[in-house]
């Protein structure tokens, strides 16, 4: 099946390539073209008109007056090297901005997604175990209600009540401005304080869906003959609950986890904006607002690559984790 791995890996590169090309095309479609804004800004800064083009070329790795195919090759080559030019609004290399932003976003998304799965699986399993009980019905109703609340509604409410009204949590930033980043207790506490509300609001709404999925899976697994046969074989309840029921109910959720991880990376555009939390999504949005196209494309590409890699890992590992699937036929989507 080595062939499959090669094909699958090639597809990752192909996808990234296509998306990168797409961003190149989109920049050309943007109102006023990619360089108008920059040209205006540079002129305003007092750069002589004769030097503007050279400066732009320097900043964006693209010759504004070169033919389109030439611009495209330049763009692709520098993007491949991780060089997205310089952010217009921040005056820093895009790569540097992205590198500073990525850890915060990954932190928020990873922690909240893990929490969603932990709570979802736990609740769903308990519900399935007591299927039809009052607890089951109450949690199902709660899950459905939670699913109907967009995370940004929770975010705004949390910010409004807990941060502004009660002032229990900070309203912006990733850590206190007076705290030096480093492995100190002070910094960790400050970072957690700042991340608490974003993580909370990004977690709550997602639990419902996972709990319902886990409940459905578990009930289906419980109805299988092999669970009954295991009971007849005299296996202990705990062994059956973990290795025969939970394992088979959780496995199908695994690809969902990685996909959700990538998908939720995109959602940070809204989340980080609400909490003024300077991560990837925050910069993507502020780049849009200030017409900072290099930064916009840089953050967009990074989010895309993260999603592509997430799907890739899901595809490759699912067959290892679930023996029923053999490579190549896995449907990670």
């Amino acid at each position: 099946m080595g062939n499959y791995y090669i094909r699958r890996t090639a597809r990752v590169f192909a996808t990234v390539f296509i998306v990168t090309s797409l961003t190149f095309g989109l920049i050309r479609l943007l109102p006023g073209g990619p360089f108008t804004q920059l040209r205006v800004r540079l002129l305003r800064q007092g750069v002589p008109a004769s030097e503007v083009d050279a400066r732009i070329a320097n900043l964006q790795n693209i010759q504004p007056d070169a033919p389109l195919w030439r611009q495209y090759i330049d763009y692709m080559l520098s993007a491949m090297q991780g060089d997205f030019g310089e952010s217009i609004s921040l005056g820093k290399p895009v790569a540097q901005v992205v590198a500073e932003a990525v850890p915060w976003t990954v932190f928020i998304v990873l922690v909240s997604t893990v929490l969603i799965f932990l709570f979802g699986i736990l609740l769903g399993a308990i519900q399935a175990y007591w299927e039809g009980s009052r607890f089951d019905k109450a949690i199902s109703a709660l899950s459905i209600s939670l699913m109907s609340i967009p995370f940004y509604v929770i975010a705004v409410l949390a910010l409004f009540i807990l941060a502004y009204q009660f002032q229990w949590f900070p309203t912006a930033g990733t850590h206190g401005t007076d705290v030096e980043p480093g492995l100190t207790l002070e910094f960790l506490v400050s970072a957690l304080e700042h991340a608490a509300l974003p993580i909370f609001s990004y977690t709550i709404g997602g639990i419902g869906g996972q709990a319902l999925a886990m409940r459905g899976n578990s009930i289906q697994v419980l109805g299988n003959d092999y669970v009954e046969v295991a009971r007849l074989r005299g296996l202990a309840d705990r062994r059956i609950a973990t290795w025969y029921v939970a394992r088979n109910a959780i496995l199908p959720l695994y690809t969902g986890f990685l996909l959700l991880l990538g998908f939720r990376l995109g959602g940070t555009v809204i989340l980080e904006q609400i909490f003024s939390y300077p991560g990837l999504g925050y910069y993507l949005w502020s780049a849009l607002e200030s017409n900072d196209y290099p930064l916009m494309m840089g953050t967009f590409l990074v989010i895309t690559v993260a999603l592509v890699i997430g799907v890739y890992i899901a595809d490759l590992t699912y067959s290892k984790i679930d023996p029923r699937i053999s490579q190549g036929e896995s449907d990670a989507y």
Binding site: D225, A230, G234, A236, W243, R247, N248, P323, R324
Partner: peptide, 25 residues
């Protein structure tokens, strides 16, 4: 049982079913 396929845990090797049974008894 009827239907051997459904009598085995699909995510467990056949050998583990034997070992599980032995341990349980």
């Amino acid at each position: 049982f009827q239907g051997a396929m459904s009598s085995f845990n699909p995510t467990m090797k056949v050998g583990s079913h034997f070992k599980d049974t032995l341990r349980a008894h």
